[in-house]
Design a protein around this nucleic acid. Structure first.
Length: 456
RNA sequence: GGGCCUGUAGCUUAGUCCGGUUUAAAGCGCCUCCCUGUCACGGAGGAGACCGUGGGUUCAAAUCCCAUCGGGCCCGCCA
C-alpha cells in the first residue's frame, strides 16, 4: 500500500497505481450509490469516485486523506477545466482528518459583497480565484527581488517603529512605547537612505503605516512597499531604474500567471517607450486633449492620472507614464529641488493605467542643505539625529523609489478595490473585523477586565 | 472634512418610485428522501426573514417622513 502522500497534479503520472492524496472537499456530487468528491490541494482539484459508504456525512471543506487507484478517464469523460481532468481516483479508503462546519456562503462559486469577503477572509481566501490574486502578488514581489538583486542591491530589513513623527505628509499612527510616544513608520525611507553609505544600493520589502482619514478604493492604512535606494545615481539614471524594475515586475506577472490574468479579464500590457513628462507638460496635454485646465494645480488628480494614461496608451503605446518635477513644496523634505528651478523638484511618479504605483526622487545629500530644509519646513533637526549622521559623514548623491505592492496587484488584475489585493487589509474601518463590531465587543466586556489592563 | 448612494432568509438579489390580494418572492446554500458517471449533476419535499434599529404619518408601512447605527462609491487629503 502507498505510504507517502502525493499531490493531486501528480496523479497524472501514476495512472494504474495505488496512491494517497489529501486535501479539502471542494464539492460533493451525490448520485446515491456513487459519489464524486472534488478534492482540492495546493496543486489543484482531483475528482475522486467513492462508494457512498466511504464518504457518509462528508461535507464541503472537510479535510480528507484518500487512498485509491488512479484511473484514466474514458475520453468522453475528460474534464478540460481541471489540470487533472484526464484522470480520476477510485477511492479505496477515506479518512476524515478534520471536519468543517456548514459554510456561511458558497465557497466554490463565491459571490459575496466586499464586507462579507473581508469579514470571512480566512475562508474566502480559499476560493481559487481569490487565492490567485496572491499568486500574482507573489510573482510581482518575486520579480522585484530578482530585479533589485540584479542591480546589485543588498536586501535590508528596516524597523517600523520610530521615535519621531517624521517625513511630514501623511498622518501617522501613534503607539505607546514603554510609556514613551512613538510612531509607526509611514515608509522605510529614512532607514533605506541611511543604508546607502553602508551598501551603496539597497532594497527592502516593508510595511508602511498611514493613518490618513481616507476611505477610497485605493487607500490602505497598512501597505506593503517595495523600495530601492541607489548611491551615485543621477536623476536620469533613477528614472531608468524605476521604469526597468516596474516593467520587469509586470512582465514577470504576465509570464508567470497568464491563466490568472485571463481569468480576471486583464488586458495585455503595452510596453511601448514610456513617456517622461514634467507635471506641467502633462497638465498641458490634459488641457489640450481634454479641455480641462489643471495647469496651475500642484499635483495630478485621480481624473488627471486617468487622462494622461489614456493619452500615453493612444499616442505612445504605453500603459505607463512617468511624471517628473512636482512642486518642491508638495514633496517630502528630503527631495532635491531642481537646481535649474527650485520651485520644482527632482521627483517622479510612475503611473500605470490611471493610477500612481510608484514614487521617488533624487535626494538632498548635502548635510547643511538638508538641515536647513528641515528647519525651513518647521521641523526640528534634533528629531532626525541618527538619520543626519549619515549625511554628516559623507552621503553620496543618491535617490530611489518605492512601489506600492497592493496597488500594482489591483491594477494588473483590474480589481475594483485595493482591499481585494491585500490578504488582511487594514483601513479606517477595519482591523480584520469591522472596528464598529470590535467596539461593540469591547463595550460588552465586563468592566473589571479593563481595570486589570490599566494597572499594567 | 464634503457629496452621492445603500441596508429585505446563511449568501446574492426582486419587491420600495406610485402604501393595500404580501400568510414578504427567487436563485444558491442548508435539512429529509430518490438516483452508479457527474464535474455549478439531476429529481421530490421541507425549514429558514417580525424587511438594520427607534420614533412618526396613516384605517393600513419592507414601501412615506425624521433620527440613529451599519455598508458602498466619489472628491479632498494621501502613496
Amino acid at each position: 500500500m502507498p505510504i507517502n502522500r502525493i499531490i493531486n497534479c501528480q496523479t497524472q503520472d501514476n495512472i494504474g497505481k495505488e496512491v494517497k492524496v489529501a486535501g479539502w472537499v471542494n464539492i460533493r456530487r451525490d448520485h446515491g450509490q456513487i459519489i464524486f468528491i472534488d478534492l482540492r490541494d495546493r496543486s489543484g482539484i482531483l475528482q475522486v469516485v467513492c462508494q457512498a459508504s466511504l464518504v457518509e456525512g462528508v461535507k464541503d471543506e472537510d479535510v480528507l486523506e484518500i487512498e485509491g487507484l488512479v484511473k484514466e478517464r474514458p475520453s468522453r469523460m475528460v474534464n478540460p477545466n481541471l489540470i487533472t481532468g484526464k484522470v480520476e481516483l477510485e477511492a479505496k479508503e477515506v479518512r476524515v482528518l478534520a471536519r468543517a462546519q456548514t459554510l456561511p456562503f458558497t465557497l466554490k462559486d463565491l459571490n459575496v459583497s466586499l464586507p462579507v469577503l473581508l469579514d470571512w477572509r480566512a475562508l474566502t481566501l480559499r476560493n481559487e480565484k481569490i487565492k490567485n490574486v496572491f499568486k500574482v502578488q507573489e510573482a510581482l514581489a518575486d520579480e522585484f527581488r530578482k530585479s533589485a538583486r540584479e542591480l546589485d542591491c543588498t536586501e535590508i530589513f528596516v524597523p517600523t517603529i520610530s521615535a519621531s513623527a517624521t517625513e511630514g505628509g501623511a498622518e501617522v499612527f501613534k503607539v505607546d512605547y514603554y510609556s514613551h510616544p512613538a510612531y509607526l513608520t509611514q515608509s522605510p525611507q529614512l532607514y533605506k537612505q541611511m543604508m546607502v553609505p553602508v551598501f551603496e544600493r539597497v532594497y527592502t520589502i516593508s510595511h508602511a503605516y498611514r493613518s490618513e482619514p481616507s476611505v477610497t478604493t485605493r487607500h490602505l492604512s497598512e501597505s506593503i512597499q517595495l523600495d530601492c535606494e541607489f548611491g551615485f545615481a543621477d536623476f536620469k539614471e533613477l528614472l531608468d531604474l524605476m521604469e526597468k524594475v516596474g516593467t520587469n515586475m509586470f512582465k514577470a506577472a504576465e509570464s508567470e500567471c497568464p491563466l490568472i490574468l485571463k481569468e480576471y479579464g486583464a488586458e495585455k500590457i503595452s510596453y511601448g517607450e514610456i513617456p517622461r513628462l514634467t507635471l506641467r507638460a502633462a497638465q498641458e496635454i490634459i488641457y489640450r486633449e481634454e479641455g480641462r485646465d489643471v495647469r496651475k494645480e500642484k499635483d495630478l488628480s485621480p481624473e488627471d492620472e486617468i487622462d494622461i494614461c489614456k493619452w500615453a496608451l493612444k499616442e505612445k503605446g504605453s500603459d505607463f507614464v512617468t511624471i517628473t518635477h512636482f512642486p518642491t513644496q508638495k514633496r517630502a523634505f528630503y527631495t532635491m529641488p531642481d537646481p535649474e528651478n527650485p520651485v520644482f523638484s527632482l521627483s517622479y511618479d510612475l503611473l500605470f493605467r490611471g493610477m500612481e504605483i510608484c514614487s521617488g526622487s533624487q535626494r538632498i545629500n548635502n548635510y547643511d542643505q538638508l538641515v536647513s530644509t528641515i528647519k525651513e519646513r518647521g521641523m526640528n533637526p534634533g528629531d532626525f539625529e541618527m538619520y543626519l549622521q549619515s549625511f554628516k559623514f559623507g552621503m553620496p548623491p543618491e535617490g530611489g523609489f518605492s512601489f506600492g505592492l497592493e496597488r500594482m496587484t489591483k491594477n494588473i488584475l483590474n480589481l475594483g478595490n485595493v482591499r481585494e489585493a491585500s490578504l488582511f487589509p487594514r483601513d479606517m474601518e477595519r482591523i480584520d473585523l469591522k472596528l464598529a463590531e470590535l467596539k461593540k465587543k469591547e463595550e460588552e466586556k465586563p468592566k473589571k477586565k479593563k481595570s486589570i489592563s490599566q494597572k499594567k
